[in-house]
Each structure stands twice: as structure tokens, then as C-alpha cells.
Design a protein around this nucleic acid. Structure first.
Length: 930
RNA sequence: GCCGGAGUGGCGGAAUCGGCAGACGCAAACGACUCAAAAUCGUUCGGGUGAUCCCCGUGUGGGUUCGACUCCCACCUCCGGCACCA
């Protein structure tokens, strides 16, 4: 026996050697095609998570594969280092956010190095360092210059717990909770900075230049929410306008996707915040309208009580005139119309819109039908209409348009007609809102703006960047922004007039930092220490021209409508600013799923004792393993005994499930009480009892976290890498399985001994076996190449296992022959991207030249995949009844004859009428009989 | 409610221009080796009480087809996103 596989020795050795040699330094080389592979950068939370490994190591494998294929590959790594957890740590533990962050980064760099990934650490970028955020601020100034950054007073989403505003994308679900802490978000009226992402709405809907998953494209498309329709101008009845009204005040524009239903509009609704409400409300309705507005504003704050979808609203007393038929219709105000979408006003067409129908039904407004269908006619034209009908039909009661098919032709024709008359025009609306980037936080890049009493809002000159975060800021325990109280930061002079001025204290959303980091890697902290101007670029132009854009991007799908939308916007904005000459930041994107916590059954505890109120006081505890039902005493509870599965435990109590229905009993346990565990001699402690774990997201509080450091220590990085690729469909993820990794350990050990152990005897080469081995080799090369290309990591490992098994079988027969050597070295080449240390070590042990990672990727020969003869299944009436072996070049007639001659097939065919025989190439023969 | 995705052995999963369902593993059982255990190697492993034969089987019910996990229709369950967006 030769030496055993010891990853703990070989992995650090190679990592050091590669680093010393600069094996993974990525240097521009015009002679080679470039490949920019990027995986989402981590937040430096303190420890690397198994999820980071799951995301990064397959991405690394693919980057390595591309490198062996001859590309000059860039695969960088960095840290998204601004953000709230650092401030929370400061509050809880009194550590400065900067120190906390940088300490975490030191640890995470170490952990990342144990992956054995080909990260080029000399290109690392850390977003909280001045050399980085100077450019983040520079981009802000650039966007401001381009008119893409603006400040406005607006009702914004605000998290009272994080004490900061949030972007629309950071508010989750129906309950409108903060994505970071889960606190319900409230609306606040604040002056905030926005980026005009809506300007790019249409371009962001165009995915034709990029290879992104359908799911992400859909999420972004829905988020942007483009809808086409028309703007139609109604007028307020002149007598209902105040005397001082300007002429345009009487024009009320609404957006509708169904201009063809205009003749059915029987009322109008304004959002409660709509300025016109104030102006047109009649004195006798004023009190009710004011009360309603107040209530609506307040409801926004207390989160309009979820389930209640009953329509509310009040009449303003004013009338409007429908431009298509001159009819006078009442103007209402109601909170189902939103000020932030469209024009904040709608026409109510109750017959053909669900919401308008509910509103009209509640307030007794007429519901005339203007779209008819054959079914409606067949039902006898029921009136009033029992249900709203938003579907297709023909226009009726619509003057010149009666009979027009709607909405298909009708929308176009009515829109054209309105436009010709100057009463409306085609229009498009989006759900997407501008990106709110102000955060009332200390730990972020300061927004480089100055407020001067004289000059107003003044941008910090480019030359003065960075606006440094004061390192000596005291983080208030209240969670407020430390910059508000930092006199040295706050007070400055106006760059224009030189007078006293105040700095903006808000910092930027951290998504701003990650919107351009893919370019930061190209020349990290570019021109640090040198003053720069607005005419400079934040990167070395040569590096940008060579590497950008990203060829393959990988990371979590949860960023679909945040990071992935923002970074596309950013690139397009920079392109329009003349900084870039391409349209999309990442040409190909693939996401991975999530590794969840491993489920586990709790032990079965049998407890005797006595009840104390609603809890049970333990006198004696015995714990049995859950999966040995033969040992289970009956579950249940009595006056002196409780028995069931342990669902949870802490230092002094257990929660025991005593029946199938899930009834829980709380068992109090005094500290000293020993726990009997059958099969264990000494009495155990409460902490020896296993408690139930559900499949859930991993989190420290749920105690289901898998620590990669411990896995690496136990199995080695290569095994962990291979297991993460093998165990799940990459894009799906799933619960962790601590047993499954053993299969990889066995496989890797087999690979190891395949190379390092000599067989018991050496046999003469056998031509047939050699040919078979080569066939297996070419087939493995093909499968692994295609699977790496397609992100199909689990099947790739399966194919490598099969190939390993084939080599094991072949070893006794043909060891030491040239064919054997070829087959073995090809196994190592295929393994190199997957298990880089193992492959390097074995490569060296075969006496091959350093490094395996500099070798070209093997190619396959289709001709070598061919077999001389193959087995074809034969079906009779759709069921497999036999198999025949035919030559690979057999013609159809031969195959047919062989199939019909097969004894079992004959049993089914004899005595019946042969209808036909279908020969499906070399795949299958199908016989039909009657 | 609307828009997506997914349902395959005890488990993770494989196979979709329609062609042998369950590759590759985990777990389990048995055997070899061992004083013994672990490791390793070998065998079995969807169900129908053995079988190379037969029947059933890819969420449910229909359909198309010589042939359906795959295509069509109607449902069910779970997951994700959106949610008065006019």
C-alpha cells in the first residue's frame, strides 16, 4: 500500500505554491481571447457560509475549465463592505463598523483561500475603502451631471427599526416589511435622492442581447410592469371649478388601457392626494372629503388593514364631462386610485373593470354595458350586469364605433380617433419607480452634496473626492445616523461662494457600490491618492477595453429586481455618459439555489415526574434514538409520565411532542438531573438529547448552520467542492445531507488509489478492453465538457464516477500500458477544475510537468464513441418484449428481421395479424399486431 | 386573484427534437475479509411474498400516438414573485 490521501496536507501545500507562482494572476494578453467570469461578491458578515461555497466553487470550476480551454480568464473576488450589520455590531458590542468589517474581511479572505479557487487576489476590491467609494461618489456626481440623479420630497418607505429609508425593492410582500429586519415599513414624507432608472424602463425590458434565465427576465419584466394604453382628457364642468382656476386646471387627464370602453365611463375617481380634489370639492361635501383624505393618509401609516378590500370613497360634488359623448359624470375620490401610478386619476368603467364594478355596485352608480358578447346576448342581455366583464367582445352603445371588435381593433381605432380630435393620445405607463438611493446611515458612501443657504444644492467638486467618512464618529445607541452629530463632517464651506455650508448626511444605498464593482476589479482603487476630475475614468481604459463586459455571471436569484436591475441601469447610464461602449454588464447569467438546513428527528424522551401547573417537572429522563421504534415506549402523557419526540430544548427545559397531532408538553428539568441514554454507561446531560430540526433556511438562531471550515477540516476542500456540485441540481438547491458526502469521500479515495496503488498483477494488454477503455474516456470527455458548459454539475460528477469505475475495472487488465496511462491522465485533466488540489498532486506523482492547471482541456473524437454492435429493445403493442443485438451499421431490414425472430417477441406475434413494424433508428423497434 | 417554477424509489437526483424510467450516489440488507469492529471489496435494492416470465408504476383524471416522465386538455399540492398598476 502506498500513502493515504491526506487533503489536509496537500491542499495548503498547493495553495501556497500556486500563490507563490502567481498561477492565477490575470494579466491582459491580446494574443488570447479573454473570459471574464464573475460570481457575486459576499457581504463580510464574519464567517463564510456553506451557501458561499455552493455558489462559488462550481463557478470556479467553470472558470478553470474555460482557462484550460485556452481563454485568458479573469475570476476576481471582493467584498460588499458597506451596510447595516456593521452598525448593529457597533451598537451591540461597541466596535467601530470599519474595524468590525475589516476584521471580518481578514477572516473571510482566509476562509475563501481554503476553497482552492482561482481568485486573483491582487484584483480584490473592498467597497468601504476610500479608494473604492471615492469612485462610487464620482458616479453619483456623473449621474447628477447627466440629470439622472435628482432630489425630491416624496412619501418614501421608511423602516422604523433600521431608522432609514428603503428602496421600493427592499420592501417585501403584502405586509410591506423591511427586507433586512422584517419590521413593517411606514411611509414618510422626506426630501430624498433618486436615480432616474425609469428613463431606461424600455431598454431594461430588452433582453435580446443577453443570455439570462427566463425566470429572471420575467421577474424584471413584471417589476418594470409596462402597460400600453391611452391618455384621455376629460374636463371638469366649468361651474364646478373655482373662479380663479387656470384653464388647464379644468382638464383632467386619465390613463387607461381600454380607451375602447370610454362610452361606459359613468364616474371618475381621483386619488385622495390628488391636488385637484382640494380645488373642486363643493362646500357641502368638503367635510366628508377632508375626513376621507385624512383617513386615507393615516391608513398609509398604519398599513391599511390587510384583508379588508371593501371599496371606500366619497363624492366631491363636482361633475366631469366625458369627451366622447358629452355626458356629465360625478367625480369621486377613493383610495383605490394611487397617486403614484398614471396620472392619479381614472375613469370608472364599471361594466368592464373589476375594481370599478365593485365601487359602482357599492355606491349605486350606473353600470352600462359597452362591450357585448354572444354569451351575454344568449343570456338575454341581463341588466344590471351580474359580473364585470373585462374580456373580448364587440363595442356597443359607443356611437360611431359600434360593432368594432374589442379590445383588439377597438383600442387602436379609438386611440387614433381621440388623437385626431385632440382629446387623447397613445401612452405607456410603468410600474417601475425611480430608485431611491438615500439612506440615513453612517456606514455607507456619503452622498457628495453640499447645502448652502446662498447657492442651494451644490455638488462637491470632483477634485475634492472622496468625501471621507469620519473614522472618529460615535455611533449613537439609538441607531440614528452618526453623521448627524459629527460637527467636523457636518460643517463645510460652499464650493461656489465659500460661505458656510452643510454637508449631506445621508449615505448611498449599498446597491450603488455593487452596481459597478465588476469594473472596479479591472483596476482596483484606480489612481488612489491622486486627485481626479470629471473627465477621468474610474478604471484603466485598457483593462476595461480588454476584459469588459462580464462573460458569465453567477449568483443568487434573490437579487433579480435589485442588484441585477440596478447594475444594468448603471451600465446603460455610463454608456450614455460616454464611459463605456457596450449595453449590458453581464452577457450570460445563471443563478444557483439555496442550501437549506438538514432535517432531523428529535430523540424520544420518556420522562417521569409530576405536573406543576401546565408544565411537567422531570424526576427522571430516558432518551431513545428516534429511528429505533422497537425501543420506543408508547408516546403520550399521564399524571406521572410524559413520553414523545423532543421538538426543542434549552438549558432548563424540553418541548416534547406527545402525539401525532403535535400536542406539545413543556418539561422542566433541574440542572443536575442525569439523562439515561440506553447503551451509554455514564449518565448523559440534557444537551446530549437531539431535538427536532425542520427543513428551513440556515440561521444561527435555528441551530442548523453547516460550517464549511469544519467540513474542510474533516474532508478537505476538494471533497466539499465535489459534493456541493454533485448533491443537488445547482439551480434548485435543497436541504443539506451530512451522510451524502461519504459517497464523494469514497469516490475521491478510489481515484487516489487508482493512481497511487499498483495492481496485484500486471496483465498483457487486451485489444478489446483497451478499445473499450478509450471509448469510455472519450465519452467522459464529451459529457464533462458539455455539462460544464451547461452548468450541469451534478451529472458531470456522475459521469466522472462512471469513468472512475471503468478505470477500476480496466486496471487489473491493462495496467501500465500506454492506453492505461492516457486514460489515467485524462481522468486527472477532467478532474482539474473540480478538485484542483487532488488533480495537481496526482499529476505530479505521475511525473507530469507542473501545473496541471496550465494544460489544455482534452477534446473528444466522435469516431471513438462508436460501438461495434448494440442492443435494441423490441416493443410489441407498446410494451418491451425482448431485446436484440445488432451491428451498428445494420440496415432496417436486418434489424426488423432480428426483432421478429426474437423468441419472446415471437410468442406475442404468432397467431395474430402483423399490422406494422416501426424501426426507430438504432434506438428501438416497435411491432404492432392485432 | 394574477404571473412563473416544480411534483419521478426510503432520500438527493438522472433520462424530455416522444423511443429500455430510475444513470450516479446516499441509506438499507446480505456476503467476503477480521478475534471483533471500522474501513474496503462483492451482491441485492420501485411495488406485486422466488423468478431471466407476467402485471402495476414518473402528483390526479382524460386525450393524441405504434410508443408519453416528455406533447394536448382539465384539475390537485408545494415553492417563488406581484398584488386595488387603471
Amino acid at each position: 500500500m502506498s500513502r493515504p490521501y491526506r487533503p489536509q496536507e496537500i491542499e495548503p501545500k498547493w495553495q501556497q505554491r500556486w500563490e507563490t507562482d502567481g498561477l492565477y494572476r490575470s494579466v491582459m494578453d491580446p494574443a488570447k481571447p479573454k473570459f471574464y467570469a464573475l460570481t457575486m461578491l459576499p457581504y463580510p458578515s464574519g464567517d463564510l457560509h456553506i451557501g458561499h461555497w455552493y455558489a462559488m466553487t462550481p463557478s470556479d470550476a467553470r472558470a478553470r475549465f474555460k482557462r484550460m480551454q485556452g481563454y485568458n480568464v479573469l475570476f476576481p473576488m471582493g467584498f460588499d463592505a458597506f451596510g447595516l450589520p456593521a452598525e448593529n455590531a457597533a451598537i451591540q458590542r461597541g466596535i467601530h463598523p470599519g474595524k468590525w468589517t475589516m476584521d471580518n474581511i481578514v477572516n473571510m479572505r482566509r476562509q475563501l483561500r481554503t476553497m482552492g479557487a482561482m481568485f486573483d487576489w491582487q484584483r480584490e476590491a473592498v467597497s468601504c475603502l476610500p479608494g473604492y467609494y471615492r469612485w462610487t461618489q464620482w458616479f453619483f456626481l456623473k449621474l447628477y451631471e447627466m440629470g439622472l440623479a435628482y432630489r425630491k420630497q416624496a412619501p418614501v418607505d421608511y423602516c422604523p427599526s433600521c431608522k432609514t429609508t428603503l428602496a421600493r425593492e427592499q420592501v417585501i410582500g403584502e405586509e410591506h416589511i423591511c427586507e433586512r429586519c422584517g419590521t413593517p415599513v411606514i411611509k414618510k414624507d422626506l426630501e430624498q435622492w433618486f436615480f432616474r432608472i425609469t428613463k431606461y424602463a424600455d431598454e431594461l425590458l430588452d433582453f435580446s442581447r443577453i443570455d439570462w434565465p427566463e425566470k429572471i427576465r420575467l421577474l424584471q419584466t413584471n417589476w418594470i410592469g409596462r402597460s400600453e394604453g391611452a391618455e384621455v382628457t376629460f374636463t371638469i364642468a366649468p361651474e364646478d371649478l373655482p373662479a380663479d382656476a387656470a384653464p388647464e386646471e379644468g382638464r383632467l387627464v386619465v390613463f387607461t388601457t381600454r380607451p375602447d370602453t370610454l362610452w361606459g365611463a359613468t364616474f371618475m375617481v381621483l386619488a385622495p392626494e390628488h391636488p385637484l380634489v382640494e380645488r373642486i370639492t363643493k362646500p357641502e361635501h368638503r367635510q366628508a372629503v377632508e375626513a376621507y383624505k385624512w383617513q386615507a393618509a393615516r391608513q398609509n401609516e398604519i398599513e391599511r388593514l390587510a384583508t379588508d378590500k371593501e371599496k371606500t370613497g366619497v363624492f366631491t360634488g363636482a361633475m366631469a364631462i366625458n369627451p366622447v359623448n358629452g355626458k356629465r359624470i360625478p367625480v369621486w375620490t377613493a383610495d383605490y386610485v394611487m397617486m403614484t401610478y398614471g396620472t392619479g386619476a381614472i375613469m370608472g368603467v364599471p361594466a368592464h373593470d373589476e375594481r370599478d364594478f365593485a365601487f359602482a355596485a357599492k355606491f349605486g352608480l350606473p353600470i352600462p354595458v359597452v362591450i357585448e358578447t354572444d354569451e351575454w346576448i344568449a343570456e338575454g342581455r341581463p341588466f344590471p350586469l351580474p359580473h364585470p366583464y373585462p374580456g373580448e367582445g364587440r363595442m356597443i352603445n359607443s356611437g360611431p364605433f359600434d360593432g368594432t371588435p374589442a379590445p383588439h381593433l377597438a383600442v387602436e381605432q379609438v386611440t387614433a380617433w381621440l388623437a385626431a380630435q385632440g382629446r387623447g393620445k397613445a401612452a405607456v405607463n410603468y410600474r417601475l419607480r425611480d430608485w431611491l438611493i438615500s439612506r440615513q446611515r453612517y456606514w455607507g458612501a456619503p452622498i457628495p452634496m453640499i447645502y448652502c443657504d446662498h447657492c442651494g444644492i451644490v455638488p462637491v467638486p470632483y477634485e475634492q473626492l472622496p468625501v471621507l467618512l469620519p473614522p472618529d464618529a460615535e455611533i449613537p445607541k439609538t441607531g440614528e445616523n452618526a453623521l448627524l452629530y459629527h460637527e467636523g463632517f457636518l460643517h463645510t464651506t460652499c464650493p461656489q461662494c465659500g460661505g458656510p455650508a452643510r454637508r449631506e448626511t445621508d449615505t448611498m444605498d449599498t446597491f450603488m457600490c455593487s452596481s459597478w464593482y465588476q469594473y472596479a476589479y479591472l483596476s482596483p482603487y484606480y489612481r488612489e491618492g491622486e486627485p481626479v476630475t470629471g473627465d477621468d475614468t474610474p478604471w484603466d481604459p485598457a483593462e476595461l477595453a480588454y476584459w469588459a463586459p462580464v462573460d458569465t455571471y453567477t449568483g443568487g436569484a434573490e437579487h433579480a429586481v435589485m442588484h441585477l436591475l440596478y447594475t444594468r441601469f448603471f451600465t446603460k447610464a455610463l454608456r450614455d455618459g460616454g464611459l463605456l461602449n457596450f449595453d449590458e454588464p453581464m452577457l450570460q447569467y445563471r443563478y444557483q439555489g439555496t442550501i437549506l438546513g438538514e432535517p432531523r428527528k428529535g430523540d424520544v424522551a420518556e420522562v417521569t415526574g409530576a405536573w406543576e401547573g401546565s408544565a411537567f417537572k422531570a424526576a427522571e429522563i430516558t432518551a431513545y434514538p428516534f429511528d429505533r421504534p422497537d425501543l420506543w415506549p408508547a408516546m403520550g402523557q399521564s399524571a406521572t409520565r410524559v413520553c414523545g419526540e423532543v421538538m426543542a430544548r434549552d438549558e432548563v427545559s424540553l418541548q416534547v411532542r406527545v402525539d401525532e397531532a403535535g400536542t406539545l408538553v413543556v418539561v422542566h428539568v433541574s440542572e443536575e438531573l442525569p439523562v439515561h441514554i440506553p447503551g451509554k454507561e455514564r449518565p448523559g446531560q440534557l444537551t446530549d438529547i437531539l431535538y427536532h430540526l425542520e427543513v428551513e433556511k440556515m440561521s444561527k438562531s435555528k441551530k442548523n448552520v453547516v460550517a464549511p471550515d469544519a467540513l474542510v477540516e474533516a474532508y478537505g476542500a476538494d471533497v466539499v467542492r465535489a459534493y456541493l456540485m454533485f448533491g443537488w441540481r445547482w439551480e434548485m438547491g435543497g436541504p443539506w445531507d451530512s451522510k451524502g458526502i461519504e459517497g464523494i469521500v469514497r469516490w475521491i479515495n478510489r481515484v487516489w488509489s487508482l493512481v497511487t496503488d499498483a495492481p496485484r498483477h500486471r496483465a498483457a494488454p487486451d485489444a478489446g478492453a483497451e478499445r473499450e477503455l478509450l471509448r469510455a474516456m472519450h465519452s467522459a470527455i464529451k459529457a464533462v465538457t458539455q455539462d460544464l458548459e451547461n452548468f450541469s454539475f451534478n451529472t458531470l460528477i456522475a459521469r466522472l464516477m462512471e469513468y472512475t469505475n471503468a478505470l477500476s475495472k480496466a486496471k487489473e487488465a491493462g495496467w501500465g500500458t500506454p492506453t492505461w496511462d492516457t486514460a489515467l491522465t485524462h481522468l486527472l485533466l477532467l478532474l482539474a477544475p473540480i478538485t484542483p488540489h487532488l488533480a495537481e498532486e496526482l499529476w505530479e506523482s505521475l511525473g507530469k510537468p507542473y501545473s496541471i492547471h496550465l494544460q489544455p482541456w482534452p477534446t473528444w473524437d466522435e469516431a471513438m464513441l462508436a460501438v461495434a454492435e448494440l442492443e435494441i429493445p423490441v416493443q410489441v403493442n407498446g410494451k418491451v418484449r425482448g431485446k436484440v443485438v445488432v451491428a451498428a451499421d445494420a440496415d432496417e431490414a436486418t434489424i426488423k428481421a432480428a426483432a421478429l425472430a426474437e423468441p419472446n417477441v415471437r410468442r406475442y406475434v404468432e397467431g395474430r395479424q402483423l399490422v406494422k413494424v416501426i424501426v426507430a433508428g438504432l434506438k428501438l423497434v416497435s411491432v404492432v399486431v392485432k
